Structures are given as C-alpha cells and as structure tokens.
Computed example of a mutant assay.
Amino acid sequence: MPKVGMPDIRKPQLVNATMTVIERVGLQSASIALISEEAGVSTGIINHYFGGKHGLLEETMRSILRAHGKTVTNALSSLPASAHKQRILAIVAANFEGQQANNKVAKTWLAFWSYSMHDNQLQRLQRVNEQRLLSHLLIELKALFSNSQAHHIAQAIAALIDGLWLRAALNPDGLSAQQSQLIIKHYLETQLQALHTQH
C-alpha cells in the first residue's frame, strides 16, 4: 500500500507507467529505474512511497481491481433487480470490456496471475477478486436455479471467463470480447434451457 501523503496525481501516473513497462519488457525486467523513467519521477519517490517494486505492483493491481469493481457496479446499477439473465451477462461483459480489454491491462493481469502463485499478498488479492466475481454471479443465479446448481454454474462461468480471457490475452490480435461473451451466453442459455426442460 502507498504511504499516506502520496500525491493523488502521482498514483495513477505511476500505475500507468508500471503497466506500460510491463507490457513492453515483462514483469521480471520491469525495474524501478525503467518505471521511474517512464513516469518521469525519481526512483527515490517510488521506493519512499511504495517500498520498491513489489509495493508498486501491489498498488497497480489494487488500482485495476478498483476500476473493475466500479465497472461491474455501474453495469448492474443500470439494470432492474429482476433482470437476472441480463445482469449475469452484464457481469460477464464487464470482464471483457472497458479497461479490462486494454492490452496493457491484460498483460499486467497475466503477469499478476503468474506472480501471485509465489506471493501471499498478491494471492490474497486474486482470491478477493475471484470471490467477488462468484458472489455477484450467485446473487443472480440463485434467483433462477437451485442452490447447488447456482454454485456449479457460477464456478463454470468464472472458469470460462478466466480461460477465454487468458487465451485472448495470449493472442497477438488481442481480446475478442464479442466472441468470448457469446460463448458464455450460449453456455448460460443451455443451462436455462435444461432447467425449463426439467420443469
């Protein structure tokens, strides 16, 4: 976490510089010297406010998570509470549109996923993000399916989001948001159709 007193204007500047450098040279080569040069600040400022590269990476991920959370919240706020299918699709769309579809953000996420396997704090952030996604999905799915079915489908949708997002992030052509969302929409509609057939 950045220390108290970090100028607000500096935080997004340093976060953006971190993502730019990660996109250009990868996480391992993204040194404090390169990031500070990209941001136009001294290495001392980064070390003082963030305690080094790890602290800056953590703040970068928190920033992306905050922006993503706002995207989801805004998407849901525009839909009626009873529009469960539309709300599920809005949650899905939020993972493939806006900032999340930015190639720079995608590469930072990819680096974060890899790095978090060996870092407890970053792993905790990843778990928080995963639980938040599942929680949003379960609220809507439980209104349509039994409790056990809702949990199963939520896990499947989350796995589809992660898998499609990962494949898209590794694709040189970037993120195919529309195709990814169509695949998940088809899965959801298949589950809804199966539910209606049972009844």
Results as ranks from 00 to 15, higher is better:
residue 141 L to F: 02
residue 157 I to T: 04
residue 103 N to V: 14
residue 162 D to I: 07
residue 116 S to I: 04
residue 126 Q to F: 09
residue 122 L to Q: 09
residue 162 D to T: 12
residue 95 N to L: 04
residue 188 L to E: 02
residue 196 H to C: 08
residue 171 N to R: 08
residue 147 N to M: 08
residue 95 N to C: 08
residue 169 A to I: 05
residue 94 A to G: 13
residue 178 Q to H: 12
residue 180 S to R: 00
residue 175 L to K: 01
residue 189 E to M: 06
residue 100 Q to M: 14
residue 192 L to V: 05
residue 131 Q to N: 15
residue 111 A to S: 15
residue 177 A to G: 14
residue 109 W to M: 15
residue 170 L to R: 15
residue 190 T to L: 12
residue 141 L to K: 03
residue 165 W to R: 15
residue 185 K to M: 06
residue 179 Q to E: 11
residue 182 L to P: 02
residue 127 R to G: 00
residue 180 S to Q: 05
residue 187 Y to S: 06
residue 96 F to W: 01
residue 113 W to S: 14
residue 157 I to S: 00
residue 127 R to H: 07
residue 124 R to L: 10
residue 149 Q to H: 13
residue 164 L to W: 04
residue 110 L to Q: 13
residue 196 H to F: 08
residue 139 I to P: 01
residue 119 D to N: 14
residue 101 A to D: 07
residue 145 F to M: 07
residue 114 S to N: 12
residue 190 T to S: 15
residue 191 Q to F: 00
residue 167 R to Q: 09
residue 173 D to T: 15
residue 111 A to M: 05
residue 137 L to I: 04
residue 178 Q to R: 09
residue 152 H to W: 10
residue 128 V to C: 05
residue 155 Q to I: 06
residue 115 Y to F: 12
residue 114 S to W: 13
residue 157 I to C: 00
residue 166 L to P: 02
residue 115 Y to R: 10
residue 141 L to N: 03
residue 137 L to S: 00
residue 111 A to R: 05
residue 147 N to K: 10
residue 165 W to I: 03
residue 129 N to A: 14
residue 181 Q to K: 11
residue 105 V to F: 05
residue 177 A to Q: 09
residue 182 L to S: 11
residue 158 A to T: 06
residue 100 Q to L: 07
residue 150 A to I: 02
residue 133 L to E: 00
residue 146 S to E: 08
residue 196 H to K: 13
residue 194 A to I: 12
residue 155 Q to F: 11
residue 142 K to S: 07
residue 155 Q to W: 09
residue 92 V to I: 12
residue 144 L to H: 04
residue 153 I to D: 03
residue 122 L to G: 04
residue 181 Q to C: 10
residue 93 A to Y: 01
residue 188 L to R: 03
residue 132 R to L: 01
residue 114 S to M: 11
residue 95 N to S: 15
residue 153 I to P: 03
residue 95 N to V: 00
residue 155 Q to C: 09
residue 115 Y to G: 03
residue 156 A to L: 11
residue 154 A to V: 03
residue 148 S to I: 11
residue 104 K to R: 15
